[in-house]
Design a binder for these strands. Sequence first.
DNA 1: CGGTGGGTTGAGAACTATCAAATCGAGTGG
DNA 2: CCACTCGATTTGATAGTTCTCAACCCACCG
Lengths: 236, 236
Amino acid sequence: MYRLAKIGDESALPPSCGACEVRGSAICCALDDSGLTALSRLGHRITLAAGETLLWEGDEAITVGNVLSGMLKLSTVTGDGREQIVGVVYPSDFIGRPFGKESPHSVTALTDASLCVFGRTAFDRFAREHEEVGHALLERTLAELDRARHWMLLLGRKSAGERVASLIVEIADRTGSAGVVDLPLSRQQMADVLGLTIETVSRALTRLKRAGIISLPGLRQLVIEQPGQLREIARG
Amino acid sequence: MYRLAKIGDESALPPSCGACEVRGSAICCALDDSGLTALSRLGHRITLAAGETLLWEGDEAITVGNVLSGMLKLSTVTGDGREQIVGVVYPSDFIGRPFGKESPHSVTALTDASLCVFGRTAFDRFAREHEEVGHALLERTLAELDRARHWMLLLGRKSAGERVASLIVEIADRTGSAGVVDLPLSRQQMADVLGLTIETVSRALTRLKRAGIISLPGLRQLVIEQPGQLREIARG
DNA sequence: CGGTGGGTTGAGAACTATCAAATCGAGTGG
DNA sequence: CCACTCGATTTGATAGTTCTCAACCCACCG
């Protein structure tokens, strides 16, 4: 009985949402079943190959959505093409610029990724009508703003070594990995996040390795040998 | 008759809001009269002298509010005390961290300032009950996030000269001044916004002056002689 | 008139970027 | 299984920018 009821509840959801990878952690988890059904009618799933760009900086902000799997970068460029990554988004994060005309940055897949996307104007209307969504969006945006401002301290005031240590700590925290960290970024991407060059990132890593604070078993793998020391350096 | 009615409408507002400096541009302008009356009961005016700090980074986020007059800085520091200004707020801007336990940055008056402040928990409750306020807050937060990310490009990728030019352009745009710009920041504060030292800021300014792009009639006054050139440099 | 605080200028040190070369690793074909 | 190749990474040498420390200037004030 109990089990049947549960199954019954689940099947009441739109099929795409019932099996959603990020159900319960994305913005939609603020909605009840009827709201979810309404929202699901506005959206659809898309996939991106690593390197594909969903939105270009300055273009019309036509899509918003949730990341289901994979990782994406948010980036801007100077007039002569120098790039800065201004955010990295993980599954269950929200992307796009609701209530805005143009996209303030490019959104590009770092890995193969799948998303659940909505037309922006339709989503805007939905968010106005469903205050739970508006509020969930607000909480996320406030948290993102905190994170962005915290990163400004790194970009404005920390040395290369401190920046690299901070990034490792951030990735470890965000992915919940204790000792072994799988790096989701190439050296070039690390450089673009940290406002450095690839060579400087590489040198900072080897210095941390020589100091015995980390080890590098593979290009995309890293072991934090002395978490305390690493955090101390990251603090600046 | 018409005039009397109008006066009648106005006097229905809480007296403090009726005479508010930023009425019509602060977050409260999303509210109708009854909402405004309810909100006004939660808040009160305070004044800060230049240099006074309202909220400290890491402390409990007990206050939120609107800036009525003056300017404030939002700042964070590294473990060893290097400071980065992560935001400058003007009249009608919102300050504080709604829906958060601790303040992510310090809030300090740059000039003498007056604010309309609310207890955070009371304001949070109010914002949940009045979706207009929640939505206004969301729009502001999204705009702040755009601005913060845009500044990350400056901090991560622009040279000292480009940073100083960008700051001048930003201040000119934000204060709506065309030729003559009154600098709201000291050289040290400019340095703290730009992630530079005071000496580097000074040198960048004299280089712009020698190039005939700006002139400096006073320490806190600046004339943009060649707006096009300045913007070109600022683009990076 | 000396002191004070903010700002500018100068010289040298430190850090990071740039350019170039060497190395590593994964995938490929023999 | 091994040599080969291509792209990514590391390492080295050097140049350029920014920081640091110090001196100096200037307006303001008691």
